[in-house]
């Protein structure tokens, strides 16, 4: 043992030295450094966790933003569509109103013109009759019974003979209809109109609505349309028929 250098005193010195060094280093180095290491490890772990939380929050926020954006886009497109529709509707309304106005104006103007013409024609009617009588007197050379002449002419123009509508007498049954139209060359008198109305009413049914039109082109006689049936008793129509036959 002596030759190997083993010595109890030195051995105990080293043992004591080691233990003392261990205690001192443990207090001065190991505990603070290991504590710092553990703290850092925890901090890193916490940082990673926080980062994960933040990442998930960000992802959530992104999806939320996407959602909100989608909603906003939908809303915007809906608003746009509504505005467009409204504008179109307004434009259409304006146009329709304008068209209606125009149509009304035109209608009233046309009615004015028609009524004026009718009045003029009504004023002209006795004169036409007088002219026709005068021309006939000249042609025939004898004086005609003025009263009969006038009745004849009236009948020519109105197609109404002694309170009866000749045209309708000649035609057979007609189907009942809601509307009827009577066209004459000159405006008809009140009595003629009432007799025609009564006659047509009998033919087409009581509730029929009758409109009277004046068209100088028909020359004379009446053209009655009841429903979809036309009964042509005008001079122009007869001439036309004649022309067709002669051809």
């Amino acid at each position: 043992m002596e030759k190997l250098g083993l010595n109890l005193g030195t051995f105990l010195f080293y043992l004591f030295n080691f233990v003392a060094l261990m205690i001192v280093l443990s207090a001065w180095i190991y505990q603070p450094v290991v504590k710092a290491l553990e703290d850092r490890r925890q901090k890193i772990a916490k940082g990673l966790e926080d980062a994960q939380v933040a990442a998930s929050a960000r992802a959530k926020a992104e999806t939320d933003a996407q959602h909100v954006l989608g909603l906003a886009q939908q809303e915007a497109s809906r608003k746009l569509r509504e505005a467009t529709e409204n504008a179109e509707k307004a434009a259409q309304e304006v146009r329709a109103a304008a068209e209606k106005d125009i149509a009304a104006l035109r209608e009233s103007a046309a009615a004015d013109i028609r009524s004026q013409r009718d009045r003029m024609l009504a004023e002209v009617r006795p004169e036409v009759a007088a002219l026709a009588i005068a021309a006939t007197q000249k042609l025939i050379g004898e004086a005609l019974d003025e009263k009969r002449q006038r009745a004849l002419i009236d009948e020519f123009f109105s197609g109404v003979k002694s309170g009866k509508v000749v045209l309708l007498e000649e035609t057979g049954e007609t189907p009942s209809a809601a509307e009827a139209e009577v066209v004459s060359a000159l405006p008809l008198t009140e009595s003629e109109q009432s007799s025609i109305r009564a006659e047509v009413g009998r033919k087409a049914g009581a509730g029929v609505r009758i409109t009277f039109q004046v068209d100088p082109d028909v020359l004379g006689g009446l053209k009655v349309r009841i429903g979809d049936r036309v009964i042509d008793g005008t001079v122009a129509g007869r001439i036309d028929n004649l022309r067709k036959t002669m051809q």
Binding site: G5, N7, L15, F18
Partner: peptide, 10 residues
Amino acid sequence: LNFPAALAVF
């Protein structure tokens, strides 16, 4: 030899 022996014994 005392030095490693002390450490080993400890």
